[in-house]
């Protein structure tokens, strides 16, 4: 009876739901941390690059980047299935935003790790 889709990121509804919630927490922590950094630190090139030179912060940033990708995937997938009723248009929209998310994640990894 239940119907699953092949274009959502999780395999079923609960997985999408968990991904959405967990990624939201990660993004919230990351935002709060950055805000704290901006308030407590005199932000210049030195302090900014020192922050990003620490491995734990690179990992934290990568986690936030993957979280925003997954979060956007679940969210946009939901929006597209709500509003785009033509299957062809919906698939094209989904393919387009998946490509954009993929590009941003790969590009972000390159920036974070200085590859």
């Amino acid at each position: 009876m239940g119907m699953n889709s092949v274009t959502n990121i999780g395999r079923n509804g609960i997985q999408d739901w968990i991904i959405q919630r967990v990624s939201a927490y990660v993004l919230a922590f990351y935002t709060v941390f950055l805000l704290g950094f901006f308030i407590t630190t005199d932000v210049d090139y030195q302090s900014w690059s020192a922050l990003f030179n620490q491995v734990w912060f690179k990992i934290f940033t990568l986690l936030a980047l993957l979280s925003i990708g997954a979060h956007a995937w679940v969210g946009l997938w939901t929006v597209s299935t709500d509003y785009i009723k033509s299957a062809m248009q919906r698939f094209l929209f989904q393919a387009a935003f998946m490509l954009v998310i993929f590009v941003y994640v790969v590009w972000g990894i390159q920036i974070i790790w200085g590859l």
């Binding site: 009876m1 239940g2 889709s5 959502n8 079923n12 509804g13 609960i14 739901w17 299935t81 709500d82």
Partner: peptide
């Protein structure tokens, strides 16, 4: 529960 597990039935 198995019948409710998809992305639409409950999670909309």
């Amino acid at each position: 529960l198995a019948d409710l597990d998809d992305p639409f039935s409950v999670f909309r």
